[in-house]
Design a protein around this nucleic acid. Structure first.
Lengths: 242, 242
DNA sequence: CAGAAAGGTTGCGCCAGCGCAAACCCGGCA
DNA sequence: TGCCGGGTTTGCGCTGGCGCAACCTTTCTG
């Protein structure tokens, strides 16, 4: 962001429609949604572009309209963890506006993307003026909290194989496109991404994913993963051999 | 809860003051805070009493006024994880009111406690009618989200020793009382609690804590832990030997 | 005060998975 | 066409910490 990439202040037709479909404006009359859309700035970014960096003062709230974003946190010791992948229709970087004001992680595009964003002032004003928007935000954040808590429990109790399976299932849930009985995860994933999502190492992730590809359970298409047997994956995510 | 334990509908003086100090009503005029307090029910519970159970329909939002509460999640495989300990002044069970409506974990008192609670209807009405309350809730949930994300990263990248040290430091932050240079964690903690908080096993936690007690780093007072050398603990939480 | 129950400690063996190192694959570019 | 760089695969050795089992200590309860 901000390197003067191709950027448009005037949301196009498609863009407005995408913004009006956001969870943020669920349950609101369409003129309010349109107003929210009118306040948005839209950036068109190439893959691998930074959107914000960990520790920076939070000045905008973001949503992915097209593409995908990686949210990665780096510890004081340099260790990295992938907190989440953002798919179209999801927001990110919003919580920091309401807490102590610093982004807790890095955000970068994982592929060419259209990113909508609102200034802190506009966003807070929207929240103050519409209880429904406030409640939608609580719902979104609450959903994320529940999700992260689940991952935390899995991290604490399950082995690497189960965690990776869960990570894939979560991604399917989030951005799966079903076609011809198989399910494609429409987010580009490196081995490293999967490893960091599941809290394991590149090596372990590579070994397991490669094995699953050999077992006709997974496949690769372009840079994306295709789940060919979701049920088997689910079984692995549960007891494993059980 | 609800076994007809000693329970009072009319909040006492102290109780009202405790409720008015909640983060929930931060920045609000005192008459609003008083109104919030007037809507609360207060239960006086013994230690080990259940407040709500995982999977139950969420009907109330809670706050601890006196005592402590354990929030524990159980996976479909039966594995348990301690999501958090709740100290006086903190709320719990609130998020479920805004999401899909089921409590995602068990809550039980870890010692004799006074628990305030609000009905879903009242709580939602408060949120709808006061943007400030809504924003306070977003802030509280956002704080928790940041906290859980940090734990998730630590879980993924650090070893058991570091994680346990972090867990203790978090508890100190949350409920530490400094006296005579040492810092007492005012929440009763079993070995098992520490283990589940840090995502390790009872055995490993016991070994490490015992070693730290031998090293004059920790001590036990009643059922609670006393941190005698917070700096050393912090050093362990970071690089360890480094 | 005895007995039970719950919690805590510790020795020991074992294995999941970490992580280095080296090779391989593949797309982009001069 | 060959080279470069990022990503991936895989062999191998090593170890953190899991988890059983047995025992000890403290706290309830009648």
């Amino acid at each position: 962001m901000g390197h003067g990439m191709s950027e448009q202040k005037t949301p196009s037709q498609n863009t407005v429609r995408a913004i009006c479909a956001l969870g943020l404006v669920r349950g609101l009359p369409s003129e309010v949604a349109a107003h929210v859309a009118s306040l948005a700035r839209v950036d068109v970014l190439p893959g691998g572009a930074g959107v914000f960096t960990q520790g920076a003062v939070a000045q905008r709230a973001y949503a992915v309209l097209v593409g995908a974003v990686r949210i990665r946190q780096i510890g004081s010791d340099g260790a990295q963890a992938l907190m989440r992948m953002i798919a179209p229709g999801e927001m990110f970087g919003t919580v920091a506006l309401f807490t102590e004001g610093y982004y807790p992680a890095d955000a970068e595009t994982a592929m060419p993307s259209h990113i909508a964003s609102w200034s802190k002032a506009d966003f807070m004003a929207l929240t103050m003026n519409s209880p429904q928007i406030a409640i939608n935000i609580i719902g979104m954040v609450g959903q994320r909290l529940a999700n992260v808590q689940n991952r935390l429990r899995e991290m604490a109790t399950q082995n690497a194989e189960q965690r990776i399976a869960h990570a894939l299932l979560m991604l399917v849930e989030q951005s799966g496109a079903v076609q011809a009985g198989v399910c494609k995860i429409c987010i580009p994933l490196r081995r490293r991404d999967v490893a960091e999502l599941a809290g394991t190492t590149l090596y372990t992730a590579s070994r397991l994913l490669a094995a699953w590809e050999k077992g006709r359970l997974l496949a690769r298409s372009r840079q994306m993963l295709v789940v060919r047997d979701a049920n088997k994956l689910r079984r692995i995510a549960q007891g494993g051999l059980l």
